[in-house]
Design a protein around this nucleic acid. Structure first.
Lengths: 239, 239
DNA sequence: TCAATAGTGTCTATTAGACACTATTCC
DNA sequence: GGAATAGTGTCTAATAGACACTATTGA
């Protein structure tokens, strides 16, 4: 039998394969708090419980796994997030009552202002602060709480090595706002001068020429350069 | 309809879901060269071509995705690798001629001595140097070459921030051997004193009390402590 | 003795943190 | 002027790289 003949008689449904979903942890900074986007499940299983934005790959529409993640996020928020990255994959026989199941998880950042209108329209989608998620005993669908925990760990790592946190802010932001966002995510205060030195060295922010208008002295407004996503502060051995 | 009723009538086969495979990039240092384990495919598609160790999840045997990766590696090498970690997931409609397919990829390290006997027994499994893989136009099955490239990038990152490279060496090794392994992987020479300072600070190696017997002054033989896998050199902001 | 490799001592340049200082706005 | 926040200057301690040095083996 050659490959062509093999492919003609190949029937995927005859093999017992795991279910596969794509789930995204969309995070933002809102009212000086880190928040995650949760959706109330409209279908079984875990109907009526809160869970991550996600679902099955549509083999007709999706051209990649990331496409699927984006499609699901657009359904919930109306927009493609400014930052989206692979987070993890987890799978076992018990995480889904329907059987052996795999979740490919992404984590994403966005300015909450970018999707405020859409989220207010849709009653079953909400920003939930991580503080309240940790303190209340809100039961999430599947192992979505585990996935959120992994996203928080990854976000902390990224916040201390890169400037991607900027994606959780509006397009124009001050260095003070960016520093505050890092402090919220890392859970500790950062020395102002050190922070600004790092930003200057990274050279991934662009001065918009505009100024903020808040209490105190106006601050320069910056926006991210496209190089930002690829930038990482020097770590480990010098190469 | 309640959840129980839903689950009773649920039939996964009625939905069009992607194929899913688990593939591992097993790396080692052999004869001062970085090598990857390749297997000659015994089945369609890409029959007779070389590819990564991998295959489908067995929903009856595997209790996790990592279990599946280990099972496939044990088939090829006879042993569970000393280091195994998630690498990436990639999926699209075209990477497999059978249809929309997802590969969950792991990367793994082992001392080649640990599986030498088994590999010599099995004719269709071989260590291939990355040098020869890059220079010859050996066509690998699926997008396995892309996955190997990602593993190499990840390995370089890890080699410069952690000491997991020790897992690619025999259980007992000298600091000189470990440094040489890092130099091979990173493709540059490392300053001896800096390297040793880092190792001392990390405190993840244990002096075995034994000494090496090679040319020149004998060197202390070390082995990894269990803390090694979790250790990372300080990077980014101090927390 | 020398070749070879292991292992150490120490100078220097860079850098993160600390913190005080100046600058600019609104009231 | 004072409160508030933006932004800078500069000292210090820690550290990575550089490199010369000593140590221990076998031939």
């Amino acid at each position: 039998m050659n490959e062509k003949e093999y492919l003609e008689i190949y029937d995927a449904t005859q093999f017992d394969s795991p279910l596969m979903t794509v789930d995204s942890v969309l995070l933002t900074i809102k009212d000086n708090q880190l928040c995650v986007l949760l959706a109330k499940r409209a279908n079984h299983p875990f109907i009526g419980q809160w869970g991550l934005a996600g679902g099955f790959i549509d083999t007709a529409k999706d051209k990649s796994i990331e496409d699927c993640a984006k499609r699901k996020l657009v359904e919930k928020t109306g927009v493609v997030p400014s930052y989206l990255n692979k987070l993890t994959v987890q799978g076992d026989p018990d995480r889904d009552p329907r059987g052996w199941s795999v979740s490919v998880a992404y984590y994403a950042l966005i300015a909450h202002q970018a999707c405020e209108a859409h989220i207010e329209d849709v009653s079953e989608v909400e920003w939930v602060t991580l503080e309240s998620l940790a303190s209340t005993s809100l039961e999430l669908a599947f192992d979505h709480l585990t996935i959120i925990d992994k996203a928080l760990v990854q976000l902390k790592v990224d916040a201390s090595r890169t400037l991607i946190v900027a994606h959780a802010l509006p397009t124009h932001f001050t260095l003070g706002e960016l520093q505050k966002a890092h402090e919220i995510i890392l859970g500790c205060s950062i020395e102002k001068k050190s922070f600004r030195r790092r930003i200057e060295k990274a050279d991934v922010l662009e001065d918009t020429g505009e100024m903020s208008k808040a209490a105190g002295r106006p601050a320069k407004l910056f926006k991210v350069k496209s190089e930002l996503d690829a930038y990482s502060f020097r770590c480990g051995l010098d190469l």
